[in-house]
Design a protein around this nucleic acid. Structure first.
Lengths: 147, 147
DNA sequence: TGAATTCGTACTGGAATGGTGCTATTATTG
DNA sequence: CAATAATAGCACCATTCCAGTACGAATTCA
């Protein structure tokens, strides 16, 4: 349906909170605190934060008083990275990703009259999302123009 | 997963074919012909064309020698219209559509720190897709810049 | 030791997607 | 008029994906 998943929504909210609470070097914030603050289901948020940690967007410390913090300055976290971490690589259509197609091949395949343009569209969209930063999302400022 | 559905893929291919075969005033092209030409599942394509007809993107004539043709010049068919017809209204996040939210409300709701920016993002995306035309997709030319 | 936390992995219910089937209606053709 | 070819409008099914849950292990601090 061309939408972001709720996981990405939660991820963005959590990241915005982390960025606001303290920047890169600061204290850790526990998943529980974030979940309480925004009324998110805790186990789900934990899964999401794990994925963000795997993608090196946040860094984590275990144990009591542990938690998460941004691994980068908000200016360097892009929407593309976040979406990729929570939803996997984006692909406007199956044929867009350079990666091997796992499921069934596109039936239209090499005869496809719109493959080129759709790929181009996909590239523009990726590039656009790669230019949106967490800092912009946090500040509520106008996002950069141009896809 | 931020992707177009396969229905939209098929729709675009079919529309490009219709536009190429003959423009607005011309003969009808049957669903069967398109399905054969691109090796698509016929019943599915028929459903898709029905939806496109409901959205007034194509017009149809019944009966033998009937079929579909573009209801508008390719320059006036936008990607947004096609996607909306096949997938329903786009919404980057639930809170983006002005429409009433059907399922469960967003739990973050009015406390959401990123709602504003995400809505703005959504608007930009819609506007962008509203500027991509079928003519551009057919010609394989560079799509218009700017989201 | 115990409490609080992340890590890894696996599972589940519900919704959406991809695809099919059937019947009615409309139009052309012989 | 009858047969055929096509769309229209349903209703339906299977599989996949999403959202959320569960649980045990590892880690850190008090």
């Amino acid at each position: 349906m061309l939408s972001l998943t709720r996981k990405t929504d939660y991820a963005l909210v959590a990241l915005a909170y982390l960025g606001q609470r303290r920047t890169v070097g600061g204290d850790s914030v526990s998943a529980r605190e974030i979940a309480d603050r925004f009324d998110m289901p805790l186990p789900l948020l934990m899964n999401i934060l794990k994925e963000l940690a795997k993608a090196r967007i946040v860094s984590s410390t275990r144990g009591a008083a542990g938690g998460y913090r941004l691994a980068m300055e908000p200016e360097h976290v892009t929407l593309l990275e976040v979406v990729t971490a929570t939803e996997g690589p984006i692909r406007l259509a199956q044929c867009c990703s350079g990666l091997p197609i796992v499921g069934q091949e596109c039936r239209v395949a090499d005869d496809c009259p719109i493959r080129g343009p759709v790929r181009h569209l996909h590239d523009r969209l990726s590039e656009f999302m790669g230019r949106i930063t967490l800092a912009e999302l946090m500040q509520g400022q106008e996002v950069a123009a141009g896809v």
